[in-house]
Design a protein around this nucleic acid. Structure first.
Length: 290
DNA sequence: AATCGACCCTGCTCGC
DNA sequence: TGCGAGCAGGGTCGAT
C-alpha cells in the first residue's frame, strides 16, 4: 500500500500522537511481524517496555520511532516497515480489537499504538541507530543503513542519483524501484514519474541521457509532493494512518490503474503490461520503448 | 559483483 | 452460488 507520501502521512500522525509518550506495556502476537527481530517477539517487548518515544523519523518507506536512552552509544529505535498493507493505528485503550492486529504498545496517556497488517509483509524490529552508508551523516536504523536518500531529503542529489542510474545496466523502472539507488518510490509513483517524463519503463538506464534521468527523478519528487499535499489534508485525529492518498488516487493519477482509458496528454489508450510480477501502466504513444 | 525471477501472505473481484 | 484465476501501492533471497 504505502509509498513515500503515505508513509510520511503516518509519520506525521505518529509525531502528533505518539512522540512524547512512554510505552507502559507491549504485546507482540504476530510471529511474522517480528520475523526480522533476533530473539523474536519477546525481544521486542523487552526492549520497548518502559521506554519513552522521542521522535518519529522516516527515510523513503522506512519509518522509525526513536526511543529515549541514557547514553548516545546505545541509541536505538522501533523500526517499522508497513510492507504492502501495514497500518499504525492509535486507539483508545479498551477499543475493540481489529482483525489482523499483530502488535500493540500501551502508552501512558491511555491510548494504544497498534500494528495492523493484513498481508503480513510489514514488521517491527527494535534495532540500533547507525550512520547512513551514503556518508550523509544521517542516523538510520541499522537494517536500513544501506537505503539511499529519498527525494525529499535536504541531502538528496538528483544528479548524483541519476549518474548512479546511468552507470547501472538495467531497466529504468527497475532502478527507480531500487531503494538503494533512490528511496521512497514505489510502483505507482514510478509509473507516474515515467509518464511525466515520457520515458518507457523498460528503457535501459544507460541509454538515457543524464538530463532525462534527472528530470524523471524530479518528476518523481513532484508527483509524490502532489500526493502528499492531497493525502495529508484528510486527517482523523484518532487514527495515525488514514490511507492518506485515497482521494488523490481516484483523481490525479495520469497512468497508474488507467488501462484502456485515454492518455490525458494525447488520447491514446493507456496500456498495462506485466513487469517484475506486478503491473506497469504507460502511454504507448508518449512513452516509446525506443 | 550485479542482475533477475521466484517467493513470501491474505482478501477481494471477476469471469465462467 | 461456487470456484479458480488474477491482482494488490512491499522487500528478500537464491540462482546465474
Amino acid at each position: 500500500m504505502p509509498e513515500l507520501p503515505e508513509v510520511e502521512v503516518v509519520r506525521r500522525g505518529l509525531s502528533d500522537h505518539v512522540v512524547g509518550r512512554r510505552i507502559t506495556s507491549v504485546e507482540v502476537t504476530g510471529a511474522r511481524t517480528a520475523r526480522r527481530q533476533p530473539g523474536g517477539p519477546a525481544e521486542i517487548v523487552a526492549r520497548l517496555e518502559g521506554r519513552a518515544v522521542s521522535g518519529a523519523e522516516r527515510r523513503g518507506k522506512y519509518l522509525w520511532l526513536t526511543l529515549d536512552h541514557e547514553h548516545a552509544a546505545g541509541a536505538d529505535c522501533l523500526l517499522v516497515h508497513l510492507g504492502m498493507s501495514g497500518q499504525m493505528l492509535v486507539a483508545d485503550a479498551g477499543a475493540p480489537p481489529v482483525r489482523h492486529m499483530h502488535a500493540r504498545a500501551h502508552l501512558d496517556d491511555g491510548t494504544e499504538l497498534r500494528f495492523v497488517d493484513q498481508r503480513t509483509f510489514g514488521g517491527w524490529t527494535v534495532v540500533p541507530l547507525t550512520e547512513a552508508a551514503d556518508g550523509t551523516g544521517v542516523l538510520l536504523p541499522a537494517p536500513a543503513a544501506h537505503i539511499a536518500a529519498d527525494p525529499f531529503e535536504p541531502g538528496f542529489d538528483a544528479r548524483a542519483a541519476a549518474r548512479v542510474i546511468r552507470r547501472r545496466d538495467s531497466e529504468i523502472k527497475r532502478l527507480l524501484l531500487d531503494q538503494t539507488v533512490v528511496s521512497g518510490i514505489g510502483n505507482i509513483y514510478a509509473d507516474e514519474a515515467l509518464w511525466r517524463s515520457g520515458v518507457h519503463g523498460r528503457r535501459r538506464s544507460g541509454a538515457l541521457t543524464l538530463r532525462v534521468v534527472v528530470e524523471t527523478l524530479q518528476h518523481a519528487r513532484d508527483v509524490m509532493a502532489d500526493a502528499l499535499a492531497a493525502g495529508g489534508t484528510s486527517f482523523d485525529a484518532l487514527y495515525v494512518n488514514v490511507n492518506g492518498a485515497s482521494g488523490y488516487f481516484s483523481r490525479a493519477l495520469a497512468s497508474y490503474g488507467r488501462e484502456g482509458e485515454p492518455c490525458t496528454r494525447c488520447g491514446t489508450p493507456i496500456v498495462r503490461e506485466r513487469f517484475m510480477n506486478r503491473s506497469s501502466y504507460f502511454c504507448p504513444s508518449c512513452q516509446r520503448k525506443r
